[in-house]
Nucleic acid binder design. Structure first.
Lengths: 198, 198
DNA sequence: TGTACATCAGTGAACGCGCGTTCACTGATGTAC
DNA sequence: TGTACATCAGTGAACGCGCGTTCACTGATGTAC
């Protein structure tokens, strides 16, 4: 009759892992087709399950979308900060920027940053904003700490730099001409990481 | 029996005007709710019509979306160029940038630029890219001609500048903190139009 | 000017479909004794 | 160890709904003579 501390430990752990699988599937599909472009059915099928079980893990598709996007952006922010701590500001900055402004990041939208990929869709879902705002703040702080000390207004440059990265990916994806896409990415790159003078 | 040059001239002119009304309604609704978030029914109702008549004007909802977005961006590009020609580079640049990076532009998405608002959705519709690419090129050229002559690499700065404007609007819309939104817009503004030295 | 006819922009019922969500169920897992 | 029972993660049929699209129609407008 008495409730035990951890009954069905095996099953509970498995449920946590299943939840993670649903989030991973949703994360990829939402970024590939848009949140409105993917059904609960497709997400569950991609996770190797049937659609009915979804509501045992999430209260609604909207809740899944908000959690998945917040989680994805928070992970990206913490990856950037880890890179700064481990590699130092100079190398971290160039790695972050080169990665973000690469052709691979533009093309593989299903593994890309949520800001250029789902930003506009998320903007229409105010419930999802607070955790995204926190992640943006964290990214701006990491970037600001990576910028050369002697240059004034590091935070202002970090804010403009992040805007530039996000916008460049949006524009590069809209261009039907690969040469223009490359030009956009290169221009953004050299604004953020000025080519070292010879 | 013989076909006349302009039979039913009145009706034909009215049909052109109706088509324009449908596009205007779609333009506002798509930017407010996203293309996937608005039905043909809603567009026609907003235009003061019933949904059945839609297919007398457009072959599909996708065709409408592509045409509306291409048209909207092309108009914006030509507005910028007109401003440059009429006001001169210095004033045109500051007007374009101040307008784009204003709180009103961020908030009133139904009248805003399609790049930050529908860019990601349009990126998934490759059929719509070519005319958008042309408009982007035109905007970059106008911006490049507005930038101070003595500074080298005007085109590169224009590309990065446009990216920065687009990204700043995306980020400002994602932030639940108005102070952060303002900070983002201000940072982007001062990158594009450096405050005149005193 | 008047009348009969042709055109076609716009109407609204209907279609098949896929969506988000619910729910009675099943069957594997863990518990009690 | 063995057996009876409880739990609950996952199943799949079913729901009401709104979507994009089609189509037979109506009625206002313009044409022919």
């Amino acid at each position: 009759m008495q409730k035990r501390e951890a009954p069905m430990r095996g099953s509970k752990e498995q449920k946590v892992e299943t939840r993670r699988r649903i989030m991973d599937a949703a994360s990829r599909l939402f970024r590939r087709e848009g949140i409105d472009g993917v059904g609960v059915d497709a997400v569950m099928h991609q996770a190797g399950l049937t659609h009915g079980g979804f509501y045992g893990h999430f209260p609604s598709k909207e809740a899944l979308a908000a959690e998945v996007c917040a989680d994805s952006l928070a992970r990206a922010a913490s990856r950037w900060e880890t890179m700064r701590v481990e590699r130092g500001p100079r190398e971290a900055l160039s790695r972050i920027v080169d990665n973000y402004l690469s052709a691979a990041h533009v093309e593989e939208s299903e593994r890309s940053c949520v800001m250029p990929t789902l930003g506009a869709e998320l903007a229409r879902r105010p419930g999802a904003h607070p955790p995204l705002t926190a992640a943006i703040r964290s990214m701006v702080e990491t970037l600001a700490r990576c910028l050369p000390r002697r240059r004034a207004a590091a935070r202002e440059r970090a804010l403009a730099g992040l805007s530039c990265m996000v916008g460049a990916v949006v524009l590069a994806r809209l261009s039907s001409d690969p040469a223009l896409s490359d030009e956009i990415l290169a221009a953004a790159r050299s604004t953020l990481v000025p080519p070292a003078p010879p």
